[in-house]
């Protein structure tokens, strides 16, 4: 620990430079997904437990249908964003980061990372890839959750809308339903995943700020500007 502190002291002399970490596409994708997911969580929880509007005539009201409409629109945007994100992971011209999602395979650094998160050690583990070890697992898990929520969402969508896309995937989705235990199963999984996203947002936001403070690299601003700050060796 002392040696690392020394190293860092020496680093003081080195100039602080901005290094590009995220491409513009990645930043846009991140924030678009964030907005979509928040809207989807709110509208989704509303659909699960809608409010009854007693006053007025039935034909004058359309509240549930409107919320469902919003939910579907943003659901499709999320689907597109997910596909875009997967594309970026493999074919991004700046940095195709699919390999970085497997940083957690290095169990030794996972151990170190856990110690750091648990505040047992104050020495920040350095990571070579884009993400820290636990971070890589969490983001991989997030993409898996998005995938599942999109699939179950499409199944529920195709059950009702028979024209266009719904019609095109109808027979396929009827078969896929079985994997999730019918529409009811798909619906329950869809609902449980909602809470998965709520939890992810809590932890992700906190750790992003925490990391920003701890690492002093400008983690938070990096997902807007695309740049982190480092003490350059040159």
């Amino acid at each position: 620990m002392i040696s690392s502190m020394k190293k860092r002291r020496q680093g003081r002399a080195k100039p602080l430079v901005a290094r590009k970490q995220w491409s513009v596409a990645m930043c846009i994708n991140h924030w678009a997904m964030a907005v979509c997911i928040v809207i989807l969580i709110i509208s989704g929880l509303y659909i699960g437990r809608p409010l009854t509007i007693g006053a007025g005539e039935t034909w004058q009201k359309f509240s549930m249908a409107k919320v469902r409409f919003i939910h579907l629109i943003f659901g499709f945007i999320l689907t597109a964003l997910f596909i875009w994100r997967i594309y970026l992971a493999f074919f991004s011209r700046f940095h195709a980061d699919w390999k970085d999602f497997f940083a957690w395979l290095d169990l030794k650094s996972v151990y170190h990372q856990v110690k750091f998160y648990m505040l047992i050690t104050t020495q920040m583990p350095e990571h070579t890839g884009l993400y820290g070890t636990l971070q890589s697992a969490a983001y991989g898990f997030l993409l898996l959750m998005v995938f599942l929520v999109v699939i179950t969402g499409l199944i529920l969508y195709a059950a009702l809308y028979r024209a266009g896309l719904g019609g095109a995937i109808y027979m396929f989705s009827r078969h896929l339903e079985g994997v999730f235990g019918g529409l009811a199963g798909a619906r329950l999984i869809h609902h449980i995943l909602t809470w998965g996203f709520v939890l992810f947002i809590c932890v992700h936001t906190y750790l992003a700020f925490w990391y920003d403070i701890v690492s002093k690299r400008g983690t938070i601003s990096s997902i807007i500007s695309g740049r982190v700050f480092e003490h350059s060796d040159i």
């Binding site: 505040l119 449980i192 809470w195 709520v198 939890l199 809590c202 932890v203 906190y206 925490w210």
Partner: peptide, 23 residues
């Protein structure tokens, strides 16, 4: 599902608070 979800969220928020203090 909602009770468990809400419960876990509460626990997580409490954990975050504790972690922040700890930090």
């Amino acid at each position: 599902a909602d009770e468990i979800g809400l419960g876990l969220t509460m626990v997580t928020l409490a954990g975050i608070g504790a972690h922040a203090l700890g930090s």
